[in-house]
Simulated assay, not measured.
Amino acid sequence: MPTGIALRDPRQQLFEAAVRVLVRDGVTGLTSRAVTTEAGVAKGVLHRHFADFDAFLTELVLDRIALIEAQATALRDAAGTGTVADNLTRALMTFFEPVTVAIVVLVIARDELRTRLRAAGTTRLPLVGEGTAMIAGYLTAERDHGRIAPDADIAALAPTLIGTAQLLSTEQDGSPPQPSAVRNVVTTILASALP
């Protein structure tokens, strides 16, 4: 006789619970027990699907990286439409939503997680590196459309945009920066790169 309800997708359910705990309680509140309690499942469920808690966290970050890769594709596809500043402002606001900011802090705080992510082939600073690549890919596509100057230093512009947007996102009291503040940063940084 069954002794519980079937889980819809245990891995995804655990990821969603971890994100809620991380955003609400921070890195110190993110434990395997907190995740399983938030998900409403027995602690053994996490260990049935993952070798240990760091393996779970590694998969959580890789799952977020896959979302960023999808965002990068959509942003590159937007090249040549709208304005460069508007496209970048939306992309940076979406990228630095509270979950991403919290996961970046998590990656910085956990040595074993960084080690496992590097072994999985991520950038030196996971999420931030993929975000920088996303912005660089978009700027390159816009340069191909003639909307970014041919001599623009994309290798400098992309990390500058990501780093500044990250600072704006972490300086707030838990709320995202105003779009106007992000747009101001974008237009200032891009001023010399526009044809």
Rank of each mutant, 00 (worst) to 15 (best):
L75R: 09
G80T: 09
T81N: 05
T81V: 01
T81G: 03
G82D: 09
G82T: 02
T83N: 05
T83E: 08
T83L: 01
V84I: 11
D86I: 00
L88F: 04
L88G: 09
L88E: 02
T89F: 01
R90H: 15
R90C: 12
A91D: 02
T94I: 11
F95W: 02
F96A: 08
T100F: 04
I103E: 15
V104Y: 07
V105R: 14
V105W: 13
V107D: 14
V107G: 14
I108T: 15
A109I: 10
R110V: 14
R110W: 11
D111P: 13
E112V: 14
R114E: 12
T115P: 03
L117E: 03
A119F: 03
A119P: 03
A120Y: 01
G121P: 07
T123E: 06
T123D: 05
R124G: 10
L125K: 07
L127N: 05
L127V: 01
V128H: 07
T132P: 03
A133Y: 12
G137C: 06
L139T: 02
T140L: 09
A141N: 00
D144W: 08
G146N: 06
G146Y: 05
R147P: 00
R147D: 06
I148E: 04
I148M: 11
I148A: 01
D151T: 05
A152L: 04
D153M: 10
A155E: 15
A156R: 14
L157S: 03
A158C: 08
A158Y: 04
P159R: 02
T160M: 11
G163Q: 03
T164W: 13
T164L: 14
T164I: 13
T164M: 13
A165M: 08
A165Q: 04
S169W: 09
T170E: 07
Q172A: 12
D173M: 12
D173L: 14
S175C: 07
P177D: 09
Q178A: 15
V182W: 10
